[in-house]
Design a protein around this nucleic acid. Structure first.
Lengths: 204, 204, 204, 204
DNA sequence: CATGAATGAGACTTCATTCAT
DNA sequence: CATGAATGAAGTCTCATTCAT
C-alpha cells in the first residue's frame, strides 16, 4: 500500500470500462430479446465474461435495466436537441427516422423506447425517469419555439409554443412507433409527410 | 346419451366461451405484468380455471399472446374507425386519449400496444399482424380523407389524403405513447393541441 | 365439478402426505448436513421428488426449516412430558439420553436441537418459537413438582419447585449437548450421575 | 538487503499478527452469521484485508473454522478453570452465565459453542477436537474434586468426584444452551438455582 | 506481500408444459 | 371435460477459491 499507486475499486477506470462492456452487451441483448427475455447469461456471453462477474459492477439485473433506460433517455434527448439546433427541422426529423429504421446503434433504439415505456407502467422508478426526461425535452422544445428568431428560436408566443412542442413530441413518438411497426417502410415516403407537418409547425 | 345434444369440440359455443374467459384473464394479466412476466398460473387463476385446461384451448402461451395481440389490433381499429365516423374529429381523438389515460379495459390498452410493438421486432408473426393491421388502418383513413365531402369524407386530393393519413397515424401513435409515459397528464391540457392539429389536418 | 368428489388443494390428504415426505427428507438432510449446508436439491432427492415440486407445499426453504424446528420442539416436549408421567424419573432421563446417543429418529435430534438454538440468535422467528416452547416446558415441570404427591406430583413448595424445574432443564439441555459431543459415551456410565442428581432433585 | 533482518515466512511475528486479525474478524462474523452463512468476503472486510490474502494464512475457509473452534475450546477451558480456582463456585458459575448473556467477546461464545457442537456430528476433526477438550475438562474437574481440601480441592472420594464432575459439566453445558435460548433472562433469577445446586455438589 | 478481478460451481426459485386421474 | 401434481429446464444470484498484476 505504501509507495505504490494502486488503481482499483469501483470507481477505477477499469471498473468503468467493465461497466461499459456490460452495458453495451446488455443493450444488444435487450434489443434482441427484450428486457425480460434477455438473461444474465446472454448478457455475460455478449460481454465475454462470466455471469457472476457482472454482479461486481451492478447490484442486480434490474440495475442494468435501469442503466440502459437512463442511457436510452440520454440518447433520445441528444437526438431531440439536434432538432432545434439544425437549420432544417424537417430534414433533421427525417434523418432521425432513418436512423431508427436502420437500427443505428449509436442512437436511441425505438424498440427499447417502446418496451421501456410499457415497463414504466409496472416500475415506478422507470416511470419517474421517463417522466423527468420527457419534461426536460418538452421544456427545451418549448423554450426553443418561444425564443426570438434572432436567437435561433422560432419566435412563437408562449402558449402556441407550448402546443406545438407538445404536438412535435407526439409526432416524434409516433415516428418511433412507426419505425418499429413498419421497419421496411421506405423513409423517403415519409419525407413529404414530415415536411408538410413541419411547414405548419414552424409557421408564425 | 339418447335425446341429448352433445355439443363438444373446438368450435362448440362452450369452447368459445372458455377461450373468451382465458383471453379476458390473459389481457388483464398481460396489462398488469407484461407478456413475459405474466405466468400461465396467473392467467389460470384470473380465469378461474386450472392451468392445464388452458392448453385445451390454446396450444401454448405464445398462442395466447398472439390472440391478445389480434384483439388489441381489433380494438385499435375499432377506435380508429370511430374517428372518421364521428362528426367532430378533434373531440373523438381527445376522447380516445381520455380512455387510454383512464385505462378503460374496453378499448385498446396503450401499454400493451407498445409492448406488442416492441415484441414485433422479435416475432415475425406479430410483426406481420401489426403491419397488416396498420395497412388496413392507413387505407381506411386515406379513403375517408379522399372521399367526397358529400359522402362523409374530407374531399382531399389522393396524395394529400395519403400524407395526412400518415400524419394522423403518427399523432395517434404518439398519443398512445403519451398516455403510457405521462399517465397523470390532465387530458384537457391536450385539447388545444389536438384541436389545432385537427384544424389543419382537415383543411382543404 | 358436478357429481364428482374431487379431493385436491393444499389441505387434501395427498398434500399432507407430500408435506410429510418433504419434512422427513428435510429432517434427514438437516441432521446430516445442517440447515445451511443441506440444499433443496438434497432434500428433493431424499424425498424422491423434483426440487420444484417442494415449492407447491412450502413457500421456501426457510419455511421448511421453520417446520422442522417446530417439529423438533414438539418432539422435545413429548420427551419432557414422559419424564413427569413416568414412575422412575432417573430411568426416564437415562432412556432419553440413550435414545439421543442412538440417534433414534423418532425423538428430538440433539444435533438439530443445538443447531436451531444457535440459529435462534440470528432468526427472530426461531428465537420466538424456542422461547415459547421452553416456557411451556418450564411451566409443566414446575406444576408437576409443585403438585401434591397424591396427585402424582412431587409436593414441593412453589419456590423450590421453580428452582428445581430450572435445574432439571439445565441438566436436560446439558445431556443433549453431551449426546452430541460425546457420541461414543457409554450411556450406562451416566446412570449413577443421573440417579444421584434425581435423588436430590425430588427430595422434599 | 545487507544489515536488514528479513523476517518473513509463515512463522514470522508478522504472520502471527495477520492470523490473529483474521481470526478476530472470523469470530465476529461467525457469531453474527454462523459458520456457513458467513462468507470469506465478510471476514475479509471485517479484517480489513483482501479476500485473497487470507489464503496466505489459512488453507481455506474450513481451516479458519477449525482455528475458531480451537479458540472457543480454549476460551471454554479457561472459564472452567476459573471455577475451581475460585473461592466461591456458585458465584463463579453465575458470573460465567452473566458473561454469556452479555455476549462478552472475551469469553467463549455460547452460540458458537452450540453451532460447533452440532458441526461435530458432521466433521470428524471437529468432533475429535471437542472430545479431547471435554476429556481434559472432565479430568481437571474430577481431579479438583478429589484433591484434598487442604490442597484447594473438595476432598471427595474418586467415584463421587467423577459423578459430580460429570454433573457439573452437564449443568455448565445446560447454562450455555440457556444463555442462547433465553437471552433476555435476568441472570439474577438463576442465582438461587445455581447456589442450591452448588451447595449439594460440594457437599462431602 | 497484497490486491481484487475473475471464474465456475452450485444455491434457491419460477414456470411452461404434460399427464394420470 | 377438467384438474393440479409433477417435472425439467432455465433464471437470478452468491461464494470459495485462484491468479495476474
Amino acid at each position: 500500500m505504501i509507495g505504490r499507486t494502486v488503481c482499483t475499486g469501483k470507481d477505477s477506470p477499469r471498473a468503468e470500462v467493465q461497466r461499459e462492456r456490460i452495458l453495451c452487451a446488455a443493450q444488444k441483448c435487450f434489443i434482441e430479446h427484450g428486457f425480460h427475455a434477455a438473461s444474465m447469461a446472454n448478457i455475460a456471453a455478449a460481454a465475454q465474461m462470466s455471469a457472476g462477474l457482472m454482479y461486481r459492477y451492478f447490484e442486480n439485473k434490474s440495475a442494468i435495466v435501469k442503466a440502459i433506460v437512463e442511457r436510452q433517455l440520454q440518447d433520445g434527448r441528444a437526438q431531440i436537441e439536434q432538432l432545434h439546433t439544425s437549420a432544417d427541422l424537417a430534414a433533421s426529423i427525417l434523418q432521425t427516422y432513418r436512423l431508427w429504421l436502420a437500427r443505428d446503434p449509436s442512437v436511441m433504439n425505438p424498440a427499447l423506447y417502446l418496451e421501456m415505456s410499457a415497463e414504466a407502467t409496472r416500475d415506478p422508478q422507470i416511470a419517474a425517469a421517463l417522466q423527468e426526461s420527457d419534461e426536460r425535452i418538452f421544456e427545451a422544445l418549448q423554450a426553443w419555439m418561444a425564443r426570438d428568431r434572432d436567437d435561433r428560436g422560432l419566435g412563437l408566443p408562449p402558449d402556441i409554443a407550448s402546443r406545438r412542442a407538445h404536438l412535435l413530441m407526439q409526432v416524434w413518438n409516433g415516428l418511433a412507433v412507426s419505425a418499429v411497426r413498419r421497419p421496411n417502410q421506405d423513409p423517403a415516403a415519409m419525407r413529404d409527410v414530415i415536411e408538410q407537418f413541419v411547414n405548419r409547425l414552424v409557421m408564425p
